[in-house]
Simulated assay, not measured.
Amino acid sequence: MDDPELLGQFLVALGDRERRSPHTIRAYRSTLRRFWDFLERGGPVCPDRLGALTPADFRRYLGERRAGGLSNRSAAREVSVIRAFFRWLRRTHGVTCTPGEHLSAPRVERRVPRPVAPDAAAALGTAADDADWTEKRDAAVLLLLYGAGLRISEALSLSAGDLSGDLVRVIGKGNKVRDVPVLPEIRHAIGAYTEACPLDLPADGPLFRGKNGGRLSPGLVRKRMREARAALGLPDSATPHALRHSFATHLLARGADLRTIQELLGHADLGSTQIYTEVDAAHLLDVYRNAHPRS
């Protein structure tokens, strides 16, 4: 089923303007189609109709979803998606309705990320000298996620020309550009991949390629992570995104300040970075409980 025109425009903007991942766009589409179907029960949906929505309309929608068993975490996500859609409507179509004033997201306890141990993270990014070029490629991607703290979508969006000396230029959410230092081990892993890769890697083309020459898909990286996780005996929590968490947690443990970590991760809000102080505190508590003679 085709998306309504307004939704289609918004979803395109998410990908083109804000560089959201395909997974995120699918989640936004699913939420907004449910909201759209709810509104269509009262008649055709257009900008004027959206601008005339009342607090009761938003509360009724969320009430129906909650009655269907929606969890606090899922409800908070739906509220966030609807708010983002109406911010876009205000900017592009002059719709002045502000659901943020009418929808209060339920409180959700933040999950503390579980970091991967440094030696395990380094092992994930190791490939034998005689490995196939795709194995060297996957090792380079995983090492980049850990060693530079990239989101998987950021790593796979890199062009060959984005690497320059000791830095990699990353385009993150909202097209925000940041330069991230690249350690010698990462440069070596990427160099091993590019040397072994049988495909052309022009400066303006994707750095990480699939076997057919297209941009490497996140699904293949996750598959490689599952295989490596099984081989190393790591828990299910050791995902590609956990490598980004590990990058931040290990920097904090070594004395890096939050502002520096914020810049390296590309967080717009320092509050998004402060969760890593909780991670480090949790680690210290584990060490204390396991080592202290009176614990």
Rank of each mutant, 00 (worst) to 15 (best):
S164N: 13
S164E: 15
S164L: 08
S164C: 09
S164W: 08
G165I: 05
G165R: 05
G165T: 09
D166Q: 15
D166F: 12
D166C: 11
D166T: 15
L167Y: 14
L167K: 14
L167C: 14
V168W: 11
R169F: 01
V170E: 00
V170D: 05
V170M: 04
I171E: 04
I171G: 02
I171H: 07
I171N: 02
I171D: 00
I171C: 06
G172K: 12
K173V: 01
K173M: 02
K173R: 00
K173L: 01
K173Q: 00
K173H: 01
N175R: 14
K176R: 15
K176Q: 04
V177C: 08
V177A: 04
R178G: 04
R178F: 07
R178Y: 05
R178A: 00
D179S: 10
D179E: 09
D179G: 05
V180G: 08
V180N: 10
P181A: 13
P181S: 12
P181Q: 13
V182R: 09
V182P: 00
V182S: 11
V182A: 14
V182G: 09
V182Y: 07
V182C: 14
L183D: 02
L183E: 03
L183N: 00
L183I: 02
E185S: 13
E185L: 13
E185C: 12
E185Y: 09
I186L: 15
I186V: 15
I186C: 08
R187Y: 08
R187P: 04
R187A: 13
R187L: 12
H188I: 12
H188W: 12
H188Y: 10
A189Y: 05
A189M: 05
A189Q: 05
A189N: 05
A189E: 06
I190Q: 12
I190D: 13
I190K: 08
G191I: 03
G191P: 07
G191A: 14
G191Q: 13
A192P: 06
A192K: 13
A192L: 12
Y193R: 09
Y193D: 14
Y193Q: 11
T194Q: 10
T194K: 03
T194P: 00
T194H: 00
E195M: 08
E195S: 07
E195W: 00
E195Y: 00
E195D: 09
E195H: 03
A196D: 12
A196K: 01
A196P: 06
C197N: 08
C197D: 08
C197S: 11
C197H: 07
P198D: 10
P198C: 15
P198W: 13
L199G: 00
L199W: 01
D200G: 10
D200A: 15
L201P: 10
L201I: 09
L201G: 06
L201H: 13
P202T: 01
P202L: 02
A203R: 06
A203T: 05
A203H: 01
D204R: 02
G205M: 08
G205E: 12
G205Q: 11
P206S: 03
P206E: 06
F208H: 06
F208Q: 03
F208T: 03
F208W: 05
F208A: 01
R209V: 03
G210I: 02
G210H: 05
G210N: 03
G210P: 07
G210D: 04
K211E: 12
K211I: 07
K211Q: 14
K211D: 07
N212A: 14
N212S: 13
N212T: 06
N212R: 14
G213F: 05
G213R: 06
